[in-house]
Computed example of a mutant assay.
Amino acid sequence: MITEEQEISQTRYCSQCGALNFISVRFCGSCGHRQSEINAEQSRPNNWQQLQQAALFYGINILVCALSSFVNYFKDIGWSLIVEVVIAGTAVIFFAYNWDDCKKLLRWPSFSWQKLAGYCAIAMIGGVIVHYSVTWINVTVFSRDGDYYSTFKGLPGGAFLLIFFLAVTPALFEELGFRGYLLKNLLNIADTGQAVFMSAFLFAIIHFSFISLFWLIPFALLLGYTRVKENTIWYGICIHFCFNLTACLFELL
């Protein structure tokens, strides 16, 4: 009978996506990447160190998001810009620090215009459904309606600022941080399904909106599984941008 220690010693992590495979497997069962002939002990990452690093990344994000959500002092336009810079900088720093593991995600293998159009169409349809659902809930349950554009309305180029800060920067830097660095990190610690769900749940939590969990978690799951399936963050960036852009267009109409 094979013991648990023996079973672990016969596995290794895929150098492309981080999924766990048996040494005897020549191609990764998750991404299909050809496995190199390296010792399993050498390929196994330091799980505790990676977990600590992921906790630091998430701690910075949740602290900054909590301040911007609950402390009025951090809600004016000046501090909002600083919050965006900190979130973007954190994503870039952690992604760059793990460059050897993460750089593969900046490639765009098997790019397809048809596939990109399909993903973007799904994102925009989802954005329309979420907009009307959230508006109905806010008006019916809370007797209010959100207005993100009011923050930028009095500024020069307010419409462009709205799209930049609500569609462009979240799509780029949240994908870089959460589906780039964090998910890559979690794939070294847990199996694919667990890693995708954990990253989705953590992503939803930092928005500090209980009512939004009904769409944030499915949306983050879509982004996570797309990242794993396509082995790139670029489809996720486009999906995220189109989804948020749809919300911005409703604000501007």
Rank of each mutant, 00 (worst) to 15 (best):
M1A: 12
E5M: 01
Q6F: 00
Q6H: 00
E7T: 01
S9M: 09
Q10F: 00
R12H: 13
C14D: 08
A19S: 15
L20P: 02
L20S: 11
L20V: 13
N21D: 12
S24K: 14
G29K: 07
G32S: 02
R34W: 00
S36C: 00
E37M: 05
I38M: 09
N39R: 08
E41D: 12
Q42M: 10
S43E: 11
N47T: 05
N47S: 09
Q50H: 01
Q53E: 12
A54G: 01
A55V: 00
F57M: 05
Y58F: 15
Y58D: 04
Y58G: 01
G59Q: 08
L63Y: 03
V64F: 06
C65F: 04
S69Y: 03
N72T: 12
F74Y: 14
D76A: 08
G78P: 00
W79G: 02
L81I: 15
I82R: 12
V83G: 10
E84R: 13
G89A: 04
A91Y: 08
V92H: 03
I93P: 00
Y97T: 10
N98C: 06
N98A: 14
N98F: 11
N98G: 12
W99C: 12
W99R: 11
D101L: 05
K103R: 15
K104G: 12
K115C: 00
K115N: 12
C120K: 03
G126I: 03
V128S: 08
V130A: 13
H131S: 09
H131L: 05
S133V: 13
V134D: 15
V134T: 13
N138S: 13
V141L: 15
V141P: 02
V141Q: 14
R144T: 12
D147Q: 09
Y148R: 11
Y148T: 11
Y149I: 00
S150T: 08
T151V: 11
K153E: 15
G154A: 08
G157K: 09
F160K: 06
L161H: 03
L162N: 07
L162P: 07
F165N: 12
F165G: 04
A167V: 03
T169Q: 14
F173S: 08
E174N: 06
L182C: 06
L183M: 14
N185L: 07
N185G: 01
L186P: 02
L187A: 08
I189R: 02
I189A: 04
A190P: 00
T192C: 09
V196P: 04
V196L: 07
M198E: 04
F203R: 06
I206H: 11
I206G: 04
F214D: 02
W215Q: 10
I217W: 05
I217P: 01
I217A: 05
P218E: 10
P218G: 06
A220S: 15
E230A: 12
T232V: 05
T232F: 07
I233N: 10
Y235V: 04
G236I: 01
I237T: 11
I237Y: 05
I237A: 12
F241S: 06
F241V: 02
C242M: 14
L245C: 08
L245A: 10
L249Q: 09
L249Y: 10
F250G: 06
E251A: 14
L252A: 09
L252I: 09
